[in-house]
Write a protein that binds this DNA or RNA. Structure first.
Lengths: 265, 265
DNA sequence: GGTATTTGTTCAGTGGATTGAACAAGCGTG
DNA sequence: CACGCTTGTTCAATCCACTGAACAAATACC
């Protein structure tokens, strides 16, 4: 995806880490996750990360022993243990369990495609998905990432941040990722939407990531010191999307958000 | 879960690793994943893993910087990046995509709860789940682990291993995990089932992990050097379970297994 | 409140992980 | 086939990450 000639800054000289081997190991995992084919050789990794071959070899051996990666001939790829660990993370989120229960019972939402997502750096990451309507199946999966500016959940979570954080992430001259002709182009446009979202209490994505598809999202109020903020979204086909339906969905989404934000809802 | 007084063998003196810091970091992740609450302090980890506090501190700093863990006050827990990495692993498995498609169209399976799993050390790990029948919702999730002897998929995948591997994993005096009165108790019992499974081509789990629930499983033939073997299973309520239905489900499971084993099915 | 315990951070010395060069083995090319 | 090129492993010297003890700060206990 990125220019494979450019060595990463993950390591090398730049940042000094209290445990360099760990930082480099994490960089290896990242590189494998981002590699289009998912497989890289020792030399690939050594070159791309700027780590000497002999060191890379040691890292890979240790990672393999921990089953965080797998070797297949000369190729390395991510290991199954990562699925375990990711699942362990998700299993601790009570919100996910309640999310499913609520969706099943909600009059309108129960027939729609609903997702719960979390902010993660400059992206959002989908944590769970409820599919009431098998007619519209999303291609995105649990764990997938999405730029903030391209999704309703991203925008609604962005709107919850402080202004100076937003300014830092999206300076006026930043170039936003574009996926459709309707994707937001400028930081100014994004920021004006943020203001509107704060007033409305929900965000709308109108074919900005996929043509023909619209999305509504609301934030989950963070109750106390309980980690990063969550967001909820409904996805629908633009063709079958009406104002009244939207109002109903937003109403139910807000109910769900409220019950997630206040335990024992 | 385990005796928290017992320090782990993950590190300490035993095995020398080519990159100890990485091995220890992996041990930290494991410890966090297995901790009942999912949160541990620096001292907890230092004590449990037998790593000096100062070293543990460095490890945690590096892990946090890589977002593999999160700090919340004095408590550390798994980080969101692990969900990303786990998802990246799953997204590379074409089998999962095809699994969903097939289940939707299969006459019998489309109404059942079907799962695809993979062998992972001495456990199986669930990779994906199709739920045609919201009536019976499983509590287990993607990424969850299960002992081999307690699940139909586990037994069917075990049956695919060589005899000496089985003997190594289950010596005659081994104590099997028990979850219900019907769980297998002895290695001998397990091995005799393995022989039967090899003849039949499928495995049955009869309330061995959950009372009232039965499970059927078939192996996915491994096509070439493509990693570890997969297995498929259907879960049903014992109350509504008939011989004819079982025959149909095994038939469709085998079709699915065949199409997963032979690309372009 | 005073004591005792535990928790997390700081820091200089040292032992072992890291490294680069040299090696052998594989791969494509002319 | 001989040649260059790349790949992954080996190994001794060096440097730096790890350590343990000593510190400060918070918590538990009586």
């Amino acid at each position: 995806m990125a220019d494979s000639r450019t060595p990463r800054s993950a390591d090398g000289l730049g940042s000094s880490s209290p445990a360099p081997a760990v930082t480099r190991a994490a960089a290896v995992l990242d590189a494998l996750a981002e590699a289009p084919s998912g497989r890289l050789t020792l030399s690939d990794l050594s070159r791309e990360l700027g780590i000497p071959k002999s060191s890379t070899s040691n890292l890979l051996l240790a990672l393999e022993e921990a089953r965080l990666i797998t070797r297949e001939g000369a190729d390395f790829s991510l290991g199954r243990k990562l699925v375990e660990l990711g699942a362990a993370y998700l299993s601790r989120l009570d919100e996910v369990q309640e999310f499913y229960k609520f969706c099943e019972q909600a009059p309108t939402l129960s027939g729609e495609t609903v997702r719960i997502a979390m902010i993660d750096g400059d992206h959002i990451i989908y944590l769970a998905r409820y599919e009431g309507h098998p007619a519209v199946r999303l291609t995105s999966n649990i764990g997938d990432k999405m730029p903030l500016s391209l999704s309703a959940v991203g925008k609604v979570l962005l709107a919850q941040l402080h202004d100076h954080d937003i300014e830092e992430m999206f300076p006026d001259d930043v170039e936003l990722p574009v996926m459709t002709p309707k994707s937001l182009r400028s930081a100014a446009e994004l920021k004006s939407q943020v203001l509107a979202i704060r007033k409305q209490g929900y965000a709308l994505e109108d074919e900005e990531s996929t043509l023909g598809v619209v999305c509504l999202a609301v934030p989950v109020p963070t109750h106390g010191a309980h980690g990063p903020s969550l967001g909820l979204s409904v996805t629908a086909l633009k063709a079958t999307f009406s104002e009244e339906q939207a109002a109903l969905m937003v109403k139910e989404l807000k109910e769900l958000a409220h019950s997630l934000g206040n335990p024992m809802g």
